[in-house]
Nucleic acid binder design. Structure first.
Lengths: 198, 198
DNA sequence: ACCAATAGCAGACAGAGTGTTCAGTAACTC
DNA sequence: GAGTTACTGAACACTCTGTCTGCTATTGGT
């Protein structure tokens, strides 16, 4: 038996209501009643789906991460050989589709819990990617691998957030991915316009 | 007339109580009464100092940023010539002194508002630094300057957070600063152990 | 087309937390 | 020491939470 149509409709309505309201007014200031009212759902029904507001937000985040993971997985294998930049590009595309949910997560709504889930998930993937690339190419990292992974994820996350908050003519995902790749390969010094390392 | 001693004591107690509690239980789950109880202050007194919990947290963040700004300002001028890495090092030192407050801000507590204040402040400083360095050295950035500043701040922030959450033998601030500088100059490709750009 | 299962509804409930007020008491500054 | 000011403790109405109730209407399976 597939999921009941009513359940599907309700979950979708709750999701849209939460995302929209958080985007407009901020997570802390919205009540469960605000959500149910916008979703056009009885308050009691809310509680038959989630324990509370946090629980709803956490589920949405988890689903998003699962979906992102599924889309990135096939690209990560080939990326382990050289830097293809494909996993990042895929993330940018996914983020553009799910823009509003990404925005509220990246803003740190919900006391940063969803953001931490997001970052942790990226770090796991990245650390594994780095490790397998090192091994495959027989090279040793020159700086602390923990720091390296965090730095890269931090860079991605910050750029992603910046990019998603631009609303009118956003640079295309491909261009942003290319800039991130340039930054990775040549460093910030080069990117600022300098030619030789200090 | 200097600030009343009672006021000073109360503010300090509120600060310590808030920071401690948020660190232990998370921002959303603590009440004003929790704070006043730990601070050993009447609840009414709380409201004579701040409008609400958010207001208190925001003030603490603002004060922290002012202090950080004051410490970095003299170092930024000389950094505009070459990359000295001194402003970053100063931030690391400041963060180590004010570790717990930094930690809760960086975690995104308070729906990420303090974190956004922090990031925005860093971006302002960084963008200005980049701009003046370009001008002084007659070079043009090779990639979008907005992205560049965000990426650098994102990297710093992520590393800072990672570093502050390590509790036992934290690598010294100087070492972390050096790694960040290496990353900036040579890029992540080099840092992973590869020799030549792809 | 029907029927059992189940999702959703409206409304009521106690309990917790908020933000304000106020008269009384202590501590501080000068 | 006198006058000012900060803190106290208790009470207030209010909002939001999370749970529970009996009732209704959709739904998926056969």
């Amino acid at each position: 038996m597939a999921e009941d149509r009513r359940t599907r409709r309700t979950r979708k309505a709750l999701r849209d209501a939460l995302v929209g309201l958080v985007l407009e007014r901020g997570y802390a200031s919205i009540t469960v009643e605000d959500v149910t009212e916008r979703a056009d759902i009885a308050r009691a029904t809310f509680y038959s789906h989630c324990r509370d507001k946090d629980d709803l937000f956490t589920r949405l985040t988890k689903d998003l991460l699962d979906e992102l993971g599924a889309r990135q997985r096939p690209l990560i294998a080939e990326n382990a050989v050289g830097f293809t930049g494909k996993p990042v590009l895929e993330m940018l595309r996914h983020a553009e589709q799910e823009r509003d949910l990404y925005r509220i997560i990246l803003r740190g709504e919900g006391d940063g819990k969803p953001l931490r889930m997001f970052v942790e998930s990226c770090v796991r993937v990245t650390a594994e990617e780095f490790r397998s690339r090192s091994e495959r190419n027989g090279v040793e990292p020159r700086i602390n691998p923990g720091l390296l992974a965090r730095a890269w994820v931090g860079e991605q996350t910050a750029v992603l957030q910046w990019w998603l908050e631009i609303d009118d003519p956003r640079p295309p995902a491909e261009e942003v991915a290319r800039m991130l790749l340039d930054l990775a390969v040549h460093g910030r010094y080069w990117a600022s316009g300098f030619d030789a390392p200090a």
